[in-house]
Design a protein around this nucleic acid. Structure first.
Lengths: 144, 144
DNA sequence: GTGAATGCAAAACCTTTGCAACTGG
DNA sequence: CCAGTTGCAAAGGTTTTGCATTCAC
């Protein structure tokens, strides 16, 4: 399990490096999504951080997540109409949505394939992001 | 602009062929999404069919769309948190979401590429659907 | 006739907003 | 100090639900 260098930097430093003012709330929210291996919803992050910071409000969690996503420290993904999920894997990857238990996991997306996928766009179309979502069944026990 | 055979079958026949009881509401909703080239939301379909059937309710439009999607006559797509959009293109395709005006368009997805994409899944993972969403800028005037 | 579909209104759900109080640099 | 952030509660927009009525077969 490779650990990227970023994990060795404090949440505060990460935020500063991304031009985001490091408030205690942002730090704890960022830590929460960096630590969780799955893809928590805002509500789950809220529940998670409330233990360490009981006064934090859900609106603030939403604010923090929005700040973290827009500075590039995490991505948000939407599966159907279910709540937005947050994901700290910044490498190109697809998501596999397990229809049986609702869990989500990252599927590595080779750079070459990503290039090929982008190539189906007609000339002049410029994609700033590509999202790939699989839905289906995974081997029992594979998720969670 | 190729027109598939299905367009020559009545909405009623289409529904019957897909084991869905053909009510007038379902027929008119189906017609609406077959005719619209863009990707209407439930609300847009509602507004659209209300002209011909003023008594129809929004809840019924949702019901009809759900019946139409689950029998395979259309697909639904979600872009971020915006309202679900409905799409009658049943061929494999990706969606390009124009960030500038919010419009959506279909991007043809070659079968070979789809196969390659599915191949990134680890053994045992079985995808019943793959959704590919591009977001970005399109040449001016390309959409709508 | 009967199970399924409709229409209506109310509820549910996730997320955003307004605003006063606070805080990080 | 002061722009930016927080917390709270209320509002927002989309979708679902409960239930009586109506309809398709």
């Amino acid at each position: 399990m490779a650990v990227t260098k970023k994990y060795h930097i404090s949440a505060s430093e990460l935020l500063k490096a991304h031009d985001v003012r490091p408030t205690p709330q942002r730090e704890i929210v960022l830590k929460s999504i960096l630590e969780k291996r799955d893809h928590p919803t805002a509500d789950e992050v809220f529940a998670n951080v409330k233990a360490a910071m009981p006064g934090i409000s859900l609106a603030t969690v939403y604010n923090c997540l929005e700040a973290i996503v827009s500075c590039g420290l995490a991505r948000s993904v939407n599966f159907e109409r279910s709540p937005t999920r947050y994901c700290h894997n910044l490498h190109p990857h697809a998501h596999f949505c397990n229809e049986e238990n609702g869990s989500t996991e990252d599927i590595d997306l080779p750079a070459k394939l990503l290039t090929k996928i982008k190539a189906i766009l007609p000339a002049g179309y410029n994609a700033s992001s590509v999202e790939i979502i699989f839905r289906g069944k995974a081997p029992t026990g594979a998720n969670n």
